[in-house]
Amino acid sequence: QKEELKEKAKEAVKRGNKDKARELLKRAGISEEEAKKIIKKIE
C-alpha cells in the first residue's frame, strides 16, 4: 500500500502536481518534512 502511494506520488510530481503528491505521501504515513524531501528528489 505504502509503495503504491509512493509510486502514485512520483507520477503526480512528474505531471507537475506537487500538492497531489504531498497528499498521497501523507496518506502513506509520511511526515510533511519527509514528503518535501521526497518530492525534491523526484523533481
Rank of each mutant, 00 (worst) to 15 (best):
G16A: 03
A21N: 00
G29S: 02
N17M: 11
L24M: 06
A21R: 02
K10A: 11
L5E: 03
R27L: 15
R15W: 06
N17Q: 13
E11S: 05
K10L: 10
G29H: 01
E11A: 08
E11K: 06
K10I: 14
I39Y: 03
R22K: 12
D19W: 07
E32A: 09
K36E: 15
K40V: 09
R27Y: 08
K37A: 13
R22G: 04
E34T: 05
A28V: 04
L25R: 00
E33Q: 08
G16R: 03
K14S: 08
E3M: 09
L24Y: 10
K40T: 12
E3W: 11
E3F: 07
E32K: 07
E34W: 05
L5D: 04
A28S: 04
G16V: 02
V13E: 01
A9Y: 04
K8L: 14
E43C: 10
R15Y: 08
N17A: 09
K14N: 09
K41M: 13
L5F: 07
V13I: 12
K8Y: 09
I30Q: 01
A21W: 05
K20Y: 14
Q1H: 12
A21D: 01
K40H: 14
K37P: 00
K20D: 09
S31M: 04
Q1I: 13
Q1M: 14
G29C: 05
E32S: 07
A21V: 03
L5T: 04
A9P: 01
I38E: 02
K36L: 14
A35I: 15
K8T: 04
I39H: 00
E32V: 07
K8H: 07
K36Q: 14
Q1P: 11
L5Q: 03
R15V: 08
S31C: 06
E3I: 07
G29N: 03
L5W: 10
L25S: 00
E23Q: 06
L5S: 03
V13C: 06
E43S: 06
E7M: 10
A21P: 00
A35T: 06
E32I: 07
E43N: 04
E33G: 06
K18N: 10
R27E: 14
E11F: 03
K20N: 06
N17D: 15
E32H: 06
R15F: 07
I30E: 03
K10V: 12
I38W: 12
L24K: 02
L25M: 02
E34M: 07
D19S: 08
L25P: 01
R27V: 08
K37Q: 13
E33K: 09
K14T: 06
E3L: 09
E23H: 05
E4V: 11
I30H: 07
A21F: 05
K20M: 13
G16Y: 03
V13D: 00
N17F: 13
V13Q: 03
L5I: 08
A12I: 04
E4T: 09
S31K: 05
I42R: 01
K20A: 13
K26M: 15
G16K: 03
A21E: 02
K8N: 05
K36S: 14
K14F: 10
E7L: 11
E3K: 08
E34N: 05
E32T: 06
L24H: 04
R15Q: 14
K26N: 08
E43T: 05
A12S: 04
G16S: 02
K14P: 01
L5Y: 08
A28D: 01
K2H: 11
R15C: 14
E11V: 06
A35M: 08
K14D: 03
E23Y: 03
K10T: 08
K26H: 09
K36H: 13
E32M: 07
K2T: 12
K6R: 10
E23L: 06
A21K: 02
R15E: 12
K37G: 11
I30W: 12
E11Y: 04
N17Y: 12
I39N: 00
A28E: 03
D19C: 11
D19E: 11
R22P: 00
A21M: 03
I38K: 01
R15N: 14
S31H: 05
K26G: 05
E23P: 00
K6S: 06
K6P: 02
L24R: 01
A35R: 02
K2R: 11
R27Q: 15
A9T: 03
L5K: 02
V13F: 08
E33W: 06
E34Q: 06
K20L: 15
K20P: 01
A35P: 00
E33L: 06
I42F: 14
A28W: 02
E3S: 08
K37Y: 10
S31E: 07
K8M: 15
I39V: 05
G16H: 04
A9S: 02
K18M: 13
